[in-house]
Structures are given as C-alpha cells and as structure tokens.
Simulated assay, not measured.
Amino acid sequence: MSRDSSLKRFDPLGEARLCLNRGVPTPGWQTMLLVERVAEAPATGLIGPYGAALLQLTPLQAASCLYGLVSSAKAMAEGRLSMEVTTCLDSGEAYALKAVRPVKATALFAWYLGAFGAELAAFAVASATLHPTMIVPGYMLGAVANGAAAWCGGSQQFLATVPNSFLFVGIAMAGHQTKCFCKNRVAVVGGEGPGFIPAVSILLRFITWTALCFLDLPNGLLPFGSLGRPMGLPVLREKFLEPVTASQEALACFTSQFWISFKPEANGTSMSLTEEVGFGECSWPATGELSSASTIFNTCLLLFAVVLVPFHMCIVVGMLLLNPTYACAADNLPLKEEVEAKQREINDFATQNEQAAGQHVLLSPPPD
C-alpha cells in the first residue's frame, strides 16, 4: 500500500482522508482492496464454510458462516470486475467501466457474484462429502489450464502463470484469459491466449466434483488420518440430502400450521386486543447428529451449490458461444478507448478535488 500511496507510508486513515478529498479511491486504497479481494476473501471463503459443514453450529455461528460465504463471494466478484479493467488497460479502474457501461458492468458483477458463490458452496459440499485433497486438484487443473492458454498465446511466461493462478485461487476459479470486455494487455504475466481453455476447465471441474460425490467410499481413500473417514454418497446423504428433506418438512409445517388469534381484554376503563402467533406443533429441523443450526446451514450450502453451479455453467457455455473476447481473446478497441477517456475524466476530477481541498502537495511524516 505504501508503495502505491502518495503519502509514501502505510497510513490507512490518511489514505481514507485522501479518498474522501478526491471523491474516488486512491491507488494505495485500491491496492489494499485488491489484496483483500484476491487473497483474503478466497481463503476465508473456502475454509470457513467447509469447516462449518463439519461442526455442530449454534444459530449465531451458522448465520456468521453464511454471511462470510456471501461477503467473500461479493469481495471476489468486486476484485474480478476490477481485474476486467486493470489487466486490459494501462490505466483504468472498475468505476470507469461502470460509468461507460453501467448495465453490462452490473450484469457482469451479478454473474461473478453467483459464480464465486457457486465455487465456495460447491467446494464446501464436495470437501465435506469427500476430502479437500480430492477437491483442491480441481483448482490445480484451472491453474494448469491458464498456463496452457498462455502457452497457446505465445507467452514466454506461461510457466509462471500456473503458480500465480494457484496462489491467487480466484484466478484459477474464473480463468486468467477469460475476460468479457477486452483481452489482457501484453504486460500482464501469462495473459495472452484463448479463454476457451480455462473455460473448459471450469466446466470439467464442476462435472468431476459432482461425479465424485456419488461414489461410495466407506473406508475413505487411505487408512491415514482423516483420509480414512467415510466418503461419498452416504456422507452426502447424511450431511446434506437429509437436512434438505428435514428443512423442507419443517418449512411445510410452519406454513401449514401458522395461525394468528386475537383476544379482546377489557377492564373498567378501557379495552385492548391481544394478538398471539403460533405454529402448532412444528419445530426447527434437525437430523441425526446435526443441530438445527447445522441442519439449516448445510441445507443452504447445498441449495447454493445446486442452484448457482448450473447457472454459472450455463453462462460459461453462453459466453463461449457468443462472446469472442471471452472465448478467443478478441480485442474491443472502441470500448477500451471509451474507458480510457472516462478514466482520464475521473483523474482530472480527482485532481481538482485534491487541489480544492489543499491536498495537491504530497504529505510527508513530520520531522523527528
């Protein structure tokens, strides 16, 4: 952050003041957000829901884990939308794209939000059903696909693309060359190449995970630690399918036996109406060894995966068929020129605001 900041020091509060004075985020603030979106959010989004699916949760813990999944997916979607611009233009940010293509930028963000939600939920369900060692190779495949696409594009840095993609796993999830508005610029490491290769790896990853979840491995993979735990369809049924059934039955009970009654109460001087709400003999869903909160949480995880994964896969197929930039790295010069022009306008606007606020002189630490 300090390297990209005009303050030349790590000062989040000072950077926030500069953002307010400018009216747009500073480069230092954008760097801080980028680290959170491409490193922290994927890590917590993958580990948190998977770990929670194995535990007995309280209602507060279940709500916190669901919020963490959604907030991580949102941060990753914002980071990916930002990369759509920063990897295509020498100078540009996501807000410039939103200014020139507001509807398309919003639709793209909605897709990425659903896509990363699908990734996080599917990883949690598949890892809890099987084992992370069987699921993580799916992201290794995505990283290798990015490297293969870079090699096909003639990049000399295709080998560096593989570890970079796996380290910043969001790139392995969504693809490095699969950009929707314009192709990567030459300076991006391993950015050359067609997008259909990593896109196919996305489809293959979800298909493979789904198929593996229907295996029956009562003795696990190896008689070593957690690798020897039961895996496959029986675990999927116990941890996810049965909770979905219990939640469905509880919801049907709540909706069918919901009632409201009104009882008038009167005394010597006034009369009041008392309202009572009831659900008959309904109770919160619970199955086997799972608490009610864990049952609801696992139900939500499976529903996210079942709904969002096909949605994401259908859009990927549609983009491959209809968007040459996404599939074949075709360039979009008119859009690039529009975004660059808008970015220059925004930069001028920020400079004027800085000058008006007296911030055009670089701030430096006071002398000792």
Rank of each mutant, 00 (worst) to 15 (best):
L66I: 13
F109C: 12
T31Y: 12
S127R: 07
P310S: 04
A96F: 12
G153H: 11
A115G: 03
V70G: 04
G190L: 02
F349I: 09
E192K: 12
Q355R: 13
V235P: 00
L204M: 10
L321P: 00
L217I: 05
T274E: 14
K104Q: 10
Q61F: 10
A286P: 02
F349W: 12
S261M: 11
P285F: 01
D4T: 15
G190M: 02
M76C: 05
A118R: 06
L120W: 07
V277I: 15
F116E: 04
T31V: 11
M76T: 07
G191V: 06
T26I: 08
M313L: 09
V200L: 14
C88P: 02
L322G: 11
M83A: 07
F214M: 02
V169L: 09
P366H: 02
K239Y: 08
G190C: 02
L97H: 10
P163M: 09
T44F: 15
L66F: 13
G92Y: 09
V38I: 14
R22H: 08
F196R: 10
E354F: 08
V169H: 01
G51D: 03
G14H: 05
L7T: 09
S6R: 15
W29Y: 14
F240G: 00
N184G: 02
A350P: 09
G278E: 09
M271E: 15
P366L: 01
S127V: 08
G278N: 11
C180N: 12
G268W: 15
R37K: 06
C328P: 00
F254Q: 03
L7D: 06
C88Y: 13
T210H: 11
S2P: 14
Y139Q: 07
S247K: 00
E15H: 06
Y67G: 13
E84P: 02
G318W: 14
T255E: 05
L69A: 03
N21D: 15
A96I: 12
K104Y: 04
G138R: 05
N298C: 06
E238A: 06
Q30M: 13
P132L: 01
L363Q: 12
G268R: 14
S6G: 13
L108G: 14
P334E: 03
G280I: 07
S272K: 12
K239V: 02
L46H: 10
E354H: 03
M313I: 06
V316G: 01
L89Q: 11
W111V: 11
A293Y: 08
M76V: 08
L20W: 15
L97Q: 11
L20S: 13
E15M: 05
E238R: 06
A126C: 11
T31I: 08
L273D: 09
V309F: 06
F240V: 00
P218Q: 03
R101G: 02
G318R: 10
F224G: 00
E345S: 03
Q61E: 15
M76Q: 09
L251A: 07
A63T: 14
G220W: 05
N298H: 07
F311A: 10
M32Q: 10
A105Y: 04
A53Q: 00
P367Y: 04
G92V: 04
